[in-house]
């Protein structure tokens, strides 16, 4: 933790003859066809997405009086459009909340309401914030329920708000920050067009058409393992694969990245909680 990286001071001037050979670029796989087949499969699954089960569960949780303060989120939680107003709230987040003096994505906001309004302990929620196996945290169902109220609406993150704009700018820089044993940043994989890791397509988050692919399917039901996962989870797992340490749950870093991606996708359609392979 405290050990310093040894930084070499010697400047050896070894000359290097770079071998400037052309790389062969051939492929042999019909990726367009494979993508089209997968899109068909996804459309079929979207028609009966198990995410709906979590929306139902989330609705129950949203309306129930819970927590040490015995209040419901329905009667206490403002998702940006006023208490009790959920239609279109998800596609207008992240946004700045004066009561918390923070820019918040939907999940962070619900966690804030659960701690501030209902009296739940943040540390308890943050202990196991993501679904695995047969376990689905309440917060995941709540996010899915709230997201369902923005189905078929366009992303409209209030980017003109200076606080949101600043979050977007910092998020953009976080996405470019290279560190760790492999020198990876978010942009190493998600900063240019038409790239893949193995067979997985990598959207270019710097462009609206890539950014929408990064945000539109979340929260999403992952068929592998049958778990419901949120965009907070997605960011967490990206950092894992980036070989970084773990981002703290519901922290600025994650919100700023989500601000960068979601606002870049502004104007494009959110189809509701999604389904993943």
């Amino acid at each position: 933790m405290r050990k310093l990286r040894i930084i070499g001071a010697a400047c050896t001037a070894a000359a290097l003859a770079a071998t400037g050979m052309a790389f062969a670029q051939s492929d042999g796989v019909d990726h367009a066809k494979a993508d089209a087949e997968f899109a068909k499969f996804r459309a079929e699954m979207e028609d009966s997405n198990p995410a709906e089960l979590f929306e139902m569960k989330g609705e129950e949780l949203w309306k129930a009086k819970r927590g040490p303060k015995n209040v419901s989120l329905a009667e206490s939680c403002d998702m940006g459009l006023g208490i009790g107003k959920l239609d279109g709230a998800y596609v207008k987040m992240p946004r700045y909340f004066a009561d918390a003096d923070k820019v918040m994505d939907a999940e962070r906001r619900i966690v804030w309401c659960m701690t501030e309004k209902q009296g739940f302990s943040f540390d308890e929620i943050a202990k196991r914030p993501f679904a695995s196996g047969n376990y689905t945290p309440d917060i995941t169902s709540l996010v899915t329920f709230v997201a369902g109220h923005s189905r078929n609406m366009k992303f409209a993150v209030p980017i003109k708000d200076p606080k949101v704009k600043e979050a977007w700018e910092i998020g953009k820089e976080i996405a470019a920050y290279r560190a760790g044993p492999y020198d990876f940043s978010c942009n190493t994989c998600h900063g240019s067009d038409g790239k893949r890791i193995r067979m997985q397509n990598l959207p270019n988050l710097a462009k609206p058409e890539g950014a929408i692919k990064g945000v539109f399917g979340w929260p999403g039901y992952r068929m592998t393992g049958g778990v419901m996962l949120t965009s907070q989870w997605r960011m967490n797992d990206c950092f894992r694969q980036q070989r970084f340490p773990e981002p703290k749950y519901a922290s600025d870093t994650v919100t700023y990245l989500l601000t960068y991606m979601t606002a870049t996708a502004n104007g494009q359609l959110y189809k509701g909680p999604g389904i993943k392979r």
């Binding site: 050990k3 700018e169 820089e173 950092f239 340490p245 700023y256």
Partner: peptide, 27 residues
């Protein structure tokens, strides 16, 4: 924004498994 990004990153991570916080520092 770049300086703020580094500040934010320094604040927002925790060690997990073999991934210690020293990985956030740049060589």
């Amino acid at each position: 924004a770049s300086a703020k990004a580094i500040e934010t990153i320094k604040r927002d991570f925790k060690p997990r498994g073999q991934a210690d916080l020293d990985r956030l520092a740049e060589d």
